[in-house]
Amino acid sequence: MSLIDPENTIPEARSPFSEAWEMFRGNTAAMIALVILCLIVLGAIFGPYLYPTDPFDMVWAPFSPPGADGFILGTDYLGRDLLAALIHGARVSIIIGLAAAAVSILIGVTVGALAGFYKGWVEELLMRITEFFQVLPTLLFSMVIVALFGASLPMITFAIGVVSWTAVARITRSEFLRIRELEYVMASRASGATNAKLMFRVILPNALPPIIVQAALMVGSAILFEAGLSFLGLTDPNVVSWGQVIGSNRQYILDASYTVTIPGLAIFITVLCISLVGDGLNDALNPKLRSR
């Protein structure tokens, strides 16, 4: 029989991470979406090696429907393999989605953190700038950027990121305003932490959960955005992406609807899965929704 020291027996407490994972795992829709999303990402990474057909090669007669003549998804108006376009285009769509979300997170978090931490005139100025960007019609503004500076992938990424950071900035600011008044921030201040340390080591990590959720949703909307720009022809013509496939086939939508429907479905499923995962993250990371 061992003696139990009351101070040494800690009730088995779970770390916030494992608690969030458990919540997430309980969300069936989010779990299914996560699995599909993983498959899509794996397909984007390894697909081009398994299916090396060049999506720009004219491999067969135009407008052969899916399944016919050995082409699983058929060919488009120039006789290019649609399956190849889908597999190779996944990379670009997902990379632009991630990179554009990263750009807008970077801008949004910086602006929101400075505004929420320093308050006063810094906040006024930054939030007025945020509002300026918020009222601009986003698609129009990014079209202007791409039209002015050229339709290269980095520029498209930048154009999407630069129009969609305002929500992140506002969320970050509100979290900073809340957290900066908490006792442990005061305690860190009292132990001599610099402003930079308070912002990025103390407050920001605690402000992350809603930002992570927003980031996940933003990847989805950035993919949609890229598809929208490509549909309008504002894309790098040498790089295949899902939106670009839809855009280039849009004149034939009545004759060969599958050429538009199939890449459209790919976008739809990907964005839906990202949204469901984001929703699951929100449930898992939001302490108010957590069952205790």
Partner: peptide, 23 residues
Amino acid sequence: LRALRGNDISMIFQEPMTSLNPL
């Protein structure tokens, strides 16, 4: 002041439950 705080003068707060960074 920052150099003094926590080094020469330091402080304990009222609420131990919330005075430590949870992360």
